[in-house]
Design a protein around this nucleic acid. Structure first.
Ligand SMILES: [Mn+2]
Ligand SMILES: [Mn+2]
Ligand SMILES: [Mn+2]
Ligand SMILES: [Mn+2]
Lengths: 220, 220
DNA sequence: AAAATAATTTAGGCAAGGCTAAATTTTACA
DNA sequence: TGTAAAATTTAGCCTTGCCTAAATTATTTT
């Protein structure tokens, strides 16, 4: 059976929160889902006890996805990212507007719809923010990007992805020309505050860590 | 507040069932919604008692939409028909495939999405089946069509709409060339069984009442 | 005009997925 | 190392929207 919309959202958030390798905590999940921690506990207990369990769970230790859970999560993420790409390309959404729309559509489109937009888009590898799109057989491609925050003076690269930015930051980055595919060069680094001075399209900007850690680069 | 998906489906069905002027019965509604009559009674009582009531209801007498209910119904119907049009035009769905997809999407698209597809399609008047699309200000345009079943020998017209046909019939009509915009001519009428003989694209077909009553014509 | 049948409503229940308040565990830190 | 704070879980409750079985009302048939 296809998981409910609620469950799909849980799985997607857990996928994201566990990408760093460590389990997702009840509180983090509650924050990301805008649901009270007590309710999250109830749901993760349920998901961990399903016939093919979707989660690995030990009290007070957080959760990780089983392979069944990961597959279900990648299904939703593929829908989300294909939808974002498609909304931008065919309906003129800007990249800071698409998220919410995709957040609702992702749960209701058919597999046929998924195939049609994937084909219409030429089976894209990344969504408008540069995030990798899981393949049709639900594998997440390897991510070979480096956070901009790891670059130093005179290093250059192409922006691959903006991760975890809210709509305000996305609009700001758009104004600065810091969008996927932009070529950038680091011209200075301040070890005290981790500020990076970068050049993009002939213009120079100084970016703090809270920004540079959200921009991902393909190094030259 | 936006009505729930369930409520939207109730309102849409009630709109359709009351187009003939008479109230929708509990049983008819239950059949259309695939929900047990007892559950329908519960829901219509609830909807009739909301602050601005969505339904007019008297025990054992069926329901009609209030103006608030009609507005909410037209909102869903507009979504549905725009979506069908758009899925056919941009993703290559055939007209017999789109219904189910639109049935789910109609509840989750934003008003912004609605405006974007309406604009992208050039504010169409009819969906792929020829059904009238409610306007952006939620009025249903006047329907000036006549059922094919009302035509007689030597009368001609253009097909405007196929109403209430299931996917199988839609595919069949498609094969016969009986799609919106096709020009047809009635060459014979049998008063005994109400069969009509019609000519479309040089071919002749004999259609029973259960078919001719679902095809609507703009008379010449 | 009964009696039978059909339609509708009532009553009681259930599952999903939330919430609050209270209890418990873990972690932090003085 | 003991305690305070933070995180998590438990317990009990609520709403939505569905169900079945039984009761009631309306409609047909005889
Ligand atoms: Mn979502
Ligand atoms: Mn899919
Ligand atoms: Mn629907
Ligand atoms: Mn709308």
């Amino acid at each position: 059976m296809k998981p409910s919309t609620s469950i799909q959202d849980y799985l997607k958030r857990i996928y994201e929160l566990t990408e760093n390798g460590s389990p997702a905590s009840t509180n983090d999940l509650a924050r990301e889902l805008n649901i009270k921690p007590a309710s999250v506990t109830g749901m993760i207990q349920k998901l961990a006890n399903e016939k093919p369990a979707l989660l690995e769970y030990q009290k007070h230790q957080g959760v990780t996805l089983t392979s069944a859970g990961k597959k279900a999560a990648l299904e939703v993420i593929r829908h989300h990212r294909l939808l974002e790409t498609w909304l931008v390309q065919t309906l003129g959404y800007s990249w800071d507007e698409v998220h919410e729309e995709a957040e609702r559509l992702e749960h209701v489109i058919s597999e046929d719809f998924e195939r049609r937009i994937a084909a219409a888009l030429g089976h894209p590898l990344r969504d408008p923010h540069g995030e990798l799109i899981p393949t049709a057989d639900l594998k997440m491609p390897l991510d070979d990007s480096t956070p901009l925050s790891a670059l130093r003076k005179n290093q250059t690269g192409k922006i691959l992805c903006i991760k975890g930015a809210d709509a305000d930051l996305l609009r700001h980055l758009d104004e600065l020309g810091l969008t996927p595919n932009a070529m950038i060069e680091v011209t200075d680094y301040s070890p005290f505050d981790h500020n990076l001075t970068i050049k993009v399209e002939k213009k120079t900007h100084v970016l703090g860590l809270s920004v540079t850690s959200k921009i991902f680069i393909e190094q030259k």
